[in-house]
Design a protein around this nucleic acid. Structure first.
Lengths: 195, 195
DNA sequence: GTCTATAGGACGATAGAC
DNA sequence: GTCTATCGTCCTATAGAC
């Protein structure tokens, strides 16, 4: 991918985080990227193509984001690594906000645009799988299917908490506490005997 | 509120569930309601006004929806009532799909339109409170703050599972199973001793 | 209150020069 | 590859008759 395409996709991510997928105007994207609208259409087929590649980029970046191991913790404490991997996405930094907002927009858009669903489902699956692996290392007593289910619950909960935070229904520190407690609950041994 | 206004707001809810908030066209709304576009503007100031009242309506309806007690279960088994109240929102019927989709749109829209946040936060709070009360009846051993936290986790998880279902990342029966297990986990006594 | 008709503007997309 | 200029369409909102 050329540098220009990458620049434009990154600019599109910023615009989406600011205005939403629905609010992205090709003109505003051009201004954000510092190019003309015509150049956008030289590099991408149409608005839907911009969206497709940008949302793909968001999905991939979210992967890398989660996948990057924090080696300090990795060796010492897999449980801390797990908790950190999840809480990483509930932070009031510009970068995390942008990421979370864009991801939420990707999710919400896919409800109405079936073309986005395949990529989204794949990115979701990759993410869930990574969390399940962390769970496996942090909690070797559990079975693989139990870890898979826990990972699905924890990531879905994180998405739910994240949008409540971003939509002003839940303070950030409260969301972080709720998520931390959920991690503890999923790792408690008594769960294994249940169901 | 006149009958016509109510009709139009109901029609707007259907269009939003079909096309999303950003996809709502006044023309399509007029057709859905069986009136002219001019009549829409006679009853509402502008497109934003339609959206505001419709999203307010969605929030209120969501309240009533959850609040309506199923008396058959209420008397017998508060735990079943709780589980049903939550699973009610994960069903493949036209009505539930419309409700969930519209609620998800309200949530997603509030990220970018601060004017919606207050209503949304209030509706969310009411819902969480109702679930917390059901938890209290189903699980008297727990404390009120623990029930409040559980209700926040369960409802946030439900929102996360719901949008994964609607966006094609999670089959409905799988979502229902994950939610059911989460309810069990929140009611397991071992949680109380934890943290 | 409700309609038909249309003004006026915003936006996606393209043409064509450099 | 990148620009300026513009076309055509779709959409919000209003004018004015009934």
């Amino acid at each position: 991918m050329s540098d220009r395409r990458t620049e434009i996709v990154r600019a599109a991510t910023r615009v989406i985080a600011r205005r939403g997928v629905r609010g992205l105007r090709v003109g505003e994207l051009a201004a954000e990227a510092g190019v003309s609208t015509a150049l956008i259409y030289y590099h991408f087929t149409d608005r839907a193509g911009i969206l497709r590649e940008t949302l793909e980029f968001i999905g991939e970046r979210a992967d890398r984001y989660t996948a990057e191991p924090d080696h300090e913790n990795a060796a010492k404490d897999p449980r801390a690594e797990l908790e950190q991997a999840l809480l990483l996405e509930l932070q009031n930094s510009a970068e995390v906000r942008e990421n979370s907002t864009a991801w939420g927009e990707l999710r919400a858009s896919a409800v109405f645009e079936s073309g986005l669903r395949e990529d989204l489902a794949r990115a979701t699956h990759t993410w869930v799988h990574e969390i399940a692996e962390l769970l496996g290392r942090a909690h070797p007593a559990g079975t693989a299917p139990a870890h898979a289910a826990s990972a699905e619950r924890l990531t879905a909960l994180l998405e739910g908490l994240s949008i409540r935070w971003l939509s002003g229904s839940l303070p950030l520190d409260h969301a972080r506490r709720l998520l931390g407690e959920a991690v503890d609950a999923e790792m408690a041994d008594c769960r294994a005997a249940h169901r």
